[in-house]
Design a binder for these strands. Structure first.
Lengths: 123, 123
DNA sequence: TCATAATTGATAACAATTATCATTTTATAG
DNA sequence: CTATAAAATGATAATTGTTATCAATTATGA
């Protein structure tokens, strides 16, 4: 991965701004706060950053994809009403990888846990 | 939900055939084994069946969506090599909903757990 | 059996994402 | 410093999966 200014500001925007943005949202943030980046470059870089482990793609939520600069193990909850995404600590499912690997006889490289419901504020 | 022959054969195909098919795959199965159903009708019915709890949409796997006639609580593992999807028992994460609800102060209505890795056969 | 609501198929539209490709930028070996 | 190869960019076309539209058909039930 060679250096590029565009990738730098994409990562910077992710780290300094909202926590679980879509590509479209990142695009709008860049426009305002940093330099504008073409939509193709943005998608290309998001994929590269995911592939290189610098960010995570949150699977299992609604399309479009959401991204997360927090690469520490944790899960997500999306409020079905306000659509906000909250972090959930990985303590809710201890030993889950070991148990699943044992059950499957497989090598698990990653996993996603996504909750849906109504958040505290919307209740 | 009024009766329709198309919905009947879609559900029948799901129950009698492969376990985690995509819409496209169901479409091809219908073509061969049952009567042909228009793609619009298929998507419409899949959504309705999900809404009515007769089948589940498996979120968090690759696009396109996969569907599951098994509505009992369980999780999924997708092999990154052969792309096959395996069931994982819900025993791997006991009390997960209660713990997450407590942490969030939210009402959880559903959740998905999806593992990725290399399956026993592909290792 | 008539009226209303639900469903269908064909197809257009849509949204998110990826591919293409000529041009520019970056890394590096001499 | 160059020269060169590899990587990245922007503009835009293309693709993919899915949903919307709408006229025609089918189901439901008073």
């Amino acid at each position: 991965m060679n250096y590029s200014r565009q990738r730098e500001i994409i990562l910077e925007a992710l780290r300094n701004n909202v926590v679980h943005p879509t590509a479209e949202y990142i695009h709008s943030v860049l426009e305002k706060q940093y330099g504008s980046v073409s939509i193709a470059t943005l998608y290309r870089n998001l994929n590269q950053l995911v592939d290189n482990g610098l960010i995570k793609r949150i699977d299992g939520l609604e399309v479009p994809s959401h991204f997360d600069h927090n690469t520490h193990e944790h899960f997500h909850f999306m409020c079905e009403k306000c659509k906000k995404i909250f972090d959930v600590s990985s303590d809710v499912a201890p030993d889950i990888v070991e148990k699943a690997q044992q059950e499957l006889g497989a090598k698990i490289n990653g996993y996603d846990i996504v909750f849906r419901g109504i958040c505290n504020d919307c209740k």
